[in-house]
Design a binder for these strands. Structure first.
Lengths: 338, 338
DNA sequence: GAGCGGACGTTATACGTAAAACTTCCGGCG
DNA sequence: CGCCGGAAGTTTTACGTATAACGTCCGCTC
């Protein structure tokens, strides 16, 4: 009596179909072959449909001791890059019956709040971008299976890592600009403490430094158009010979650099070649379109999820970085004479 | 014996502290006053700390019949707008002990897959953007408390709605352009079946139509720079007098319009004024910077979450649209003579 | 000296599911 | 005839938590 408004349970379905709760679980869990007759199974399925039955996930998770849910920890979602990572991860996850919960470290909520307090769901594992640095300590506290994205393979003790081949991307940028004849470089670096940015600086210095008569100056800025504008302005109007090539750690920084160049009366690419890294929508919205390194965010997410699945199943994730590709557009050209 | 590697439970803590499981639950749940002595309570807390105890959320959710987790359903996260919505919603949620799980309908996963299959977490409620139209039917199937964002207050039977005052934003755009002297308008509309875009078209037609001697032509494009470029190109090179003002439903469309104008040799704003809507980072990356309507995404998310909390507590969400603001930048100017 | 109420706990139970272990019925085989 | 094995279920249990309901013990009051 008075079943009222509460959600139907497997027991309600059992009663409606005239069987035991166990039978319902067997049928709906597709484990009934040889245990329940076809006619009874159909009766159960019908009752479930009629009642609009949906299994209680909390109960199932408790019973099974796993949730088929993983957490993706990313920095604040201010570009479409991590949206792509999510999409790729979610696609692979769905193929394996997993769900992905997103935890974008929300600025302003306070760094002390750890991801697990927020993503209340019980979790089977975690994929974390190294850029979400503040959240990491909290994560390591738990013993959850962990995959790190874009993180130092040496430094992330034990955790599997999946990386984009940023080193190769920077190499391609450097060689492209060197081939064009550039010798004086300015590196507009992201002021974010993350391994992936250290790699950029290191590789650029190495490649350019290998050629005699070159120089690289570095200036740092937080990843925002306005900050990049300010930093690039200052650097470009500094005394001494002006750099002819500006290598940015990120497309957003490049957008700021465009504005700085414009204010200083420098034309891109005639007076200054500019490169980015990411290939966001922004890159083709700029005028001229930005020469940049395309990162396949979805593929990145897919690999991350596959690695986590491997860890969960006790396998070893396959190694190997994800290739990236230089996309040459209108923002790079040979340096003007002089 | 052999407690091994499995996560400690409240029973383990109880054993370590020499009390019953119930006592542990009382202490850790902060309900022990008058039930457990201070010294015993401290002993329990210490044991919990030593063992690294974390309550099993699946069990708690099952016991309590609620999860303090809500789902935020958004269209694919290709701009920072919904990142802002998430941030606002998550902030308010955190203040009330809730978590927010994000479900960006991932393109390519297939529309049939409903959010609940993916976000395996059990949920207390849902906040859904009307732009994620394909997911909505699945949602209505469940009887979860629902708040709709940017949705027709008439059409969304029963569900509470929280809206940005888009109508007012479009009004401001229209009056700004009319004040500048524009009479021939082109409306670059988002080709997305959503109420929020219908509103834009309706209000623009009404405001401009109220002034004699005006005209509005409309052309639609999916929200992508390339599609906008194509649509705007075609419309701007059509026969007849060229429009002097191009009103875009979205900043991304405006970015496409800039490229179209450039290819046709039209200068912004001298030959063509352009407006957007959103105020993404993109808006200030463009040259000239885009006159657009600033939507406060975080505030939007906050209001959405507050409305859902109200519904969950049986209160009536407060009504009232969220104000928006026209930001005049360099992309609008009086039409050139002739 | 009976009784009462607070302090300090414990025992028992329920949440909804999955699955192991058990029952019952029957047809067939040696 | 005795027995075995498979089909078709059912009964029971466990997952980890929160909390209602129940015990003590002790100091006080009347």
């Amino acid at each position: 009596m008075a079943r009222g408004s509460t959600r139907p349970t497997s027991r309600d379905v059992a009663q409606a179909a005239g069987v035991s709760q166990a039978a319902v679980s067997l049928v709906l869990g597709d484990k009934w072959r040889g245990r329940v007759s076809e006619t009874t199974a159909e009766r159960v399925r019908e009752a479930a449909r009629d009642l609009g039955y949906r299994p209680n996930l909390a109960a199932r998770n408790l019973r099974l001791g796993r949730t088929r849910t993983v957490l993706l920890v990313v920095p604040a979602l201010t570009t479409e890059f991590f949206a792509g990572v999510y999409t790729g991860a979610a696609r692979v996850a769905a193929d394996h019956g997993f769900g992905v919960v997103l935890y974008p470290s929300p600025e302003g909520i306070g760094p002390a709040r750890d991801p697990f307090a927020s993503a209340q769901a019980a979790l089977d594992g975690v994929i974390a971008s190294s850029m979400a640095a503040d959240a990491l300590t909290a994560i390591r506290g738990d013993q959850l299976p962990l995959v790190m994205l874009d993180s130092d393979p040496e430094g992330s003790l034990g955790a599997a890592t999946v990386n984009l081949d940023i080193t190769d991307g920077v190499r391609q940028v450097a060689e492209h600009l060197l081939d064009l004849g550039h010798r004086r470089f300015l590196h507009l670096a992201a002021d974010v403490p993350s391994w992936t940015f250290e790699v950029r600086a290191r590789e650029l210095a190495a490649r350019v430094g290998a050629v005699p008569g070159t120089s690289v100056r570095t200036v740092r800025a937080p990843i925002s158009i306005d900050d990049a504008l300010a930093a690039a302005s200052a650097a470009l109007s500094a005394p001494g010979p002006r750099p002819t090539a500006l290598v940015c750690d990120d497309d957003k920084l490049a957008a700021g650099a465009y504005k700085a160049a414009r204010r200083l009366g420098l034309r891109v690419p005639d007076d200054l070649s500019v490169t980015g890294l990411d290939d966001l929508a922004l890159a083709t919205a700029l005028d001229p379109e930005l020469t940049t390194v395309r990162l396949d965010a979805e593929l990145f997410g897919e690999h991350g999820m596959r690695a986590l699945l491997a860890v969960l199943e006790g396998r070893t994730p396959e190694a190997g970085d994800i290739p990236v590709e230089l996309v040459v557009r209108g923002s790079t050209a040979p340096p003007s004479a002089s």
